[in-house]
Design a binder for these strands. Structure first.
Lengths: 351, 351
DNA sequence: CTGAAAGCGCTTACAG
DNA sequence: CTGAAAGCGCTTACAG
């Protein structure tokens, strides 16, 4: 069977286009387009014809084409440091809100690297997303320049109220939260309160929490002892465990540790048990974020609730509002908005 | 100042287009397009002119337009049940692989609901993604029909090797894994081995793990005691704790529990401690997935490694390969591919 | 190696 | 309320 004529082959089953639906319904493309986006503006008989044709063809609108024509992609980007606690709930909150508005979420992970954040912002601007949610602080100059020039709606999440932000932001009181943790430990009679946190470079959250710890010591008239502070290598439980081990080598007499992350705090509690220390009797521990495990573990973990999921919901809502108002944002002219979620000390068994 | 003439207003700072770059460089749009996508096909002097213009304008290609023109969006969709352990590492693996190929990831969350999965598949097909990664099993008929008709490259993740899949798949031996967990507990001398898992409706992973547990009992000549099995209400640690509480009410003499999820198993261990039971002396516990906490907790958790991150990497790689080969997939004509990651028993302190 | 033309599948803006 | 025309910003396919 040589040289099969192309006319004898079944046509490639192309996805039906709006024009196909229109022809089948006996109306113009515009009527189909309206029936889809604003059914109220189409007469009942027309609408019925269109809907029948829609059903018959199994038509799926091409959102790439509509994105090009309308300059609105109905896509929002989320840029997070890691796909893990406590950021996963923030992502969850965003997808929940976006779903209700038929928006989709594109995801980028920076691994706490400002250069990777820059590459992601560039990629998302190229995709003409309708908004970008990212973490406050630690941006390169180029990232800031691109965002400003593009005018894309932007919201910075996990900012401390004192953080300088670019435009809109959702913030939580991280500095006050850490101070409250120290106050609480003092009220429980603890006198030698250590601190374990993550690296502060490019991480304004860890910076604010460390400052809050120092505020707390200061307020209590306790001296800051740098040897009673330790930095965990990364945000893994094991890194928290290792940090406690190093800390106890230098300061075996600590009776409390304020830990700037639940993930690290969980590792701290496990390491304490491993060493035969009883939490909280021998060592009180407070965490940060109120991750799932803080409530579930035994002993349960006293922590500062950062409202991770609500933060995602608010960020998505702010982005949708900007997008609904027309899209472009002039950073110089528009008033920026801030949503402050505060913080909450959650008392549990570990302190 | 009435009626400001529009010609006196500064033009809205539109993002530069390829045409603007071409004009500045004194070349045609095609040359700019080639310089961007296949620099090797452009002469050195031309390339230099284009690159200078690119730099000067700060041009960001419009990927929406190029997606429409080329029918390739460079976007892949991931549809997962929940943004949490053990799926977060799968997502992480996908983003890592996709980043290297300049693909982006759109995310959808089903909450284990086939109807939500269907809505997400529809939305992603409308966006003309170049591939979809979703979880094996639990699809509606409509989901299957849409995927088949669209011909979009698809890969099902977290399948058991025996699972019937639509096209390509990445699988892990969940049934064999559970059997091995029971074997291990038997070898440790345990005789009354209970089981805790999640709901099996729409969840082939939990189905396979339960079957593997029954295989293990059968192999050991132990009778299946339905009262020694319990279903957790959801995949939260607390649900695991509650499940153990119910189980011990009926069968207080269990000396081991095979748990079909690390998250649940962690809750089981905490609940055991809460009740003064020593793990593993009084109660041995095995988990499933090898989540971060399995290694970090004290006592550390014996578990079955499901290679969550590698699964994401493989799924992304398979999708990229299909996309690179031209895109459309004819399910009837093309051979489907399967990647089997096996499983591994990780021995730790809890058993 | 370079470019002019046509077209991807929609929506915007304007008529009627 | 409905429709014909133009255009969104690229790439494909074809010439030279």
């Amino acid at each position: 069977m040589p040289a099969t004529g192309t006319d004898t082959l079944p046509a490639a089953p192309m996805a039906p286009r709006m024009e196909d639906v229109a022809r089948l319904a006996g109306v113009s493309m515009m009527t189909v387009s309206r029936a889809l986006r604003a059914p109220g503006t189409v007469s009942a008989p027309m609408l019925a014809k269109v809907r029948a044709a829609l059903r018959q063809t199994g038509y799926l609108p091409n959102l790439v084409a509509s994105g090009l024509a309308s300059s609105r992609t109905q896509v929002v980007a989320a840029i997070i440091p890691l796909i893990s606690q406590p950021f996963a709930p923030t992502l969850q909150g965003m997808t929940d809100v976006l779903r209700a508005s038929a928006y989709q979420l594109v995801l980028g992970v920076t691994h706490y690297d400002p250069r990777q954040e820059e590459a992601l912002v560039r990629a998302f601007l190229s995709r003409r997303v309708d908004g970008i949610a990212l973490f406050a602080g630690g941006h390169t100059e180029e990232t800031v320049a691109m965002v400003r020039q593009s005018g894309v709606p932007l919201v910075e999440m996990w900012a401390d109220p004192a953080t300088e932000v670019l435009v809109d932001s959702v913030c939580v009181s991280q500095r006050l939260g850490a101070r409250e943790a120290v106050r609480h430990l003092r009220a429980r009679g603890r006198r030698r309160i250590g601190f374990i946190g993550g690296a502060t470079a490019n991480n304004i959250r860890q910076q604010a929490r460390l400052r809050g710890y120092l505020d707390g010591l200061d307020e209590a008239g306790l001296p800051d002892d740098p040897a009673a502070r330790e930095v965990a290598g990364c945000f893994l439980m094991e890194a928290g465990a290792e940090a406690l081990a190093r800390l106890l080598t230098r300061r075996p007499d600590l009776d409390a540790v304020c830990v700037a992350s639940d993930i690290l705090a969980v590792g701290v509690v496990f390491e304490a048990h491993r060493r035969g220390l009883i939490v909280p009797d021998d060592l009180a521990v407070t965490g940060f974020d109120d991750a799932e495990i803080a409530r579930a573990m035994y002993p349960s973990l006293t922590t500062i609730d950062m409202k991770a999921e609500e933060m995602g919901r608010q960020a998505a809502a702010m982005l949708l509002e900007r997008a609904g108002q027309g899209g472009r944002v002039d950073l110089a002219a528009m008033p920026s908005r801030r949503c402050d979620l505060g913080h909450a000390l959650i008392l549990r068994e570990s302190s």
